[in-house]
């Protein structure tokens, strides 16, 4: 897959005549196959590749979850084990801790691909980079954001989160972390070429996370008080829709900057 992408795209992007030459030559058949396979094939291949990689590197999937649980453990120790007090601050704590865990996992989103050069191949591919990076972000959410959302109710029990808000907590986190992955990927793409981009990445991304945090934690608060949560969740969905529409272009532009620099 990757060697073939390289072969065809070098020729298609650099010089059209080179491409014609390449097809006339008794080249390996894979060169042609890429051109038959359109966008969906490339997106699917990227999805499968990233899922496989992350499943093989289980640490990258598990570490954010462990971090999430650890940070949540710190708060009762630092503030008070009183369940009544914890119940009041639980929605905010859970959201902030999940946000930080998601942030922590961002650095590895493009890092290994950058180090081993496969990110360059992604850039050279004839398919639009925005779509391929969207596929990568989707995998990141699937194996970071979604597990965080599923684990949050469990930690909610430990923080004495009032009953009736557990489903909203998981749902708001699932919706919200998708936006967080998309926005964060812009920062990750901008800093992937820098040797020590970790702290800088959080500096760039955290201010942009604030709207998601407001409506995500707000949804859980509203569920506890008994207000309607649909407005909060609808806005989270709207933020996700806007991020889905705009972020891939910014990610693609940022990746190009990082690779060329």
């Amino acid at each position: 897959m990757h060697s073939s992408l390289q072969g065809s795209s070098h020729s298609s992007s650099d010089s059209p005549s080179g491409y014609r030459q390449a097809t006339r030559m008794p080249a390996p058949s894979v060169t042609l196959r890429v051109h038959k396979g359109g966008l969906m094939v490339a997106v699917k291949a990227t999805l499968m590749r990233d899922v496989t990689l992350l499943i093989r590197r289980r640490g990258e999937v598990l570490n954010p979850l462990v971090f999430f649980a650890l940070v949540i453990t710190l708060f009762p120790i630092a503030i008070s084990p009183d369940p009544e007090l914890l119940a009041v601050i639980a929605p905010g704590l859970l959201w902030v801790a999940a946000l930080l865990a998601a942030l922590l996992s961002l650095d590895s989103l493009f890092r290994s691909d950058y180090d081993d050069g496969s990110l360059e191949q992604l850039l050279l591919a004839p398919q639009p980079l925005a779509a391929l990076s969207l596929a990568k972000v989707a995998v990141h959410w699937l194996l970071t954001g979604l597990p965080l959302a599923l684990m949050a109710p469990l930690l909610g029990i430990m923080l004495a989160l009032p009953a009736g808000s557990y489903a909203v907590l998981a749902l708001s986190l699932a919706l919200g972390t998708a936006s967080l992955s998309l926005i964060g990927a812009i920062g990750a793409a901008l800093t992937v070429g820098l040797a020590r981009g970790g702290v800088l990445l959080s500096l760039l991304v955290l201010p942009l996370y604030i709207p998601v945090l407001i409506f995500g934690a707000g949804a859980v608060q509203a569920a506890i008080v008994g207000d309607g949560v649909s407005a909060h969740l609808a806005i989270l969905g709207a933020l996700l829709a806007a991020a889905l529409m705009l972020a891939p272009w910014a990610i693609a532009a940022s990746l190009r900057i990082s690779i060329n620099g």
């Binding site: 812009i186 901008l190 070429g193 760039l204 201010p207 942009l208 604030i210 709207p211 933020l239 806007a242 705009l246 910014a250 532009a253 940022s254 900057i257 990082s258 060329n260 620099g261």
Partner: peptide, 21 residues
């Protein structure tokens, strides 16, 4: 050159987000 382009992208991302924030 990379610094200029990265800062430009971030400024544009930021300006889209300012009203949302």
């Amino acid at each position: 050159d990379s610094a200029s382009r990265a800062a430009s992208v971030l400024a544009m991302v930021g300006v889209i987000n300012i009203p949302i924030i």
